[in-house]
């Protein structure tokens, strides 16, 4: 099972990296999501793929009856998924806002137009706020 998962993880990393170097921001977010999933799967795999019982200790024993599955990697993945969920949700809101202000999801368009802004000088600090 491990070799298969290793290939899958490698594939996910490769796909994530490929998407991240695309110009579209949406694809970049997809790439980030894949990268996160690849990392999660990696943790899952290095936590040993054993078919074990839940690590419950019977009432009259001091050790669980072996073999048990290690719960820690799963807890780590769960936490990481939750965090990834939050971050990706934020990133989606962000790219929506970017699309609204820039009118494009192409990073090159964003940058070139911004250089135009920079040469016009930054006159916005003083505005926008009166007592």
């Amino acid at each position: 099972m491990e070799p298969v998962l290793a290939v899958v993880i490698g594939g996910l990393y490769a796909a994530g990296m490929y998407l991240m170097v695309r110009r579209s921001i949406v694809k970049m977010i997809f790439g980030l999501a894949l990268l996160g999933n690849a990392a999660n799967l990696l943790i899952f795999t290095v936590g040993r793929l054993t078919r074990g019982r839940p690590p419950h200790i019977p009432l009259d024993a001091t050790l669980p009856s072996l073999p048990v599955a290690d719960p820690v990697p799963q807890a780590l993945i769960l936490t990481a998924i939750v965090i990834g969920f939050g971050v990706q949700a934020f990133a989606l809101v962000l790219i929506k806002r970017v699309y609204q202000t820039v009118g494009s999801d192409d990073q090159d368009v964003m940058v070139t137009e911004n250089q135009g802004l920079a040469t016009r000088g930054t006159g916005r600090e003083g505005q926008g706020d009166e007592v």
Binding site: G86, A89, L92, V93
Partner: peptide
């Protein structure tokens, strides 16, 4: 609350 906040915003 958090998910609905994001869903409503989107």
């Amino acid at each position: 609350g958090m998910s609905l906040l994001i869903i409503f915003t989107l």
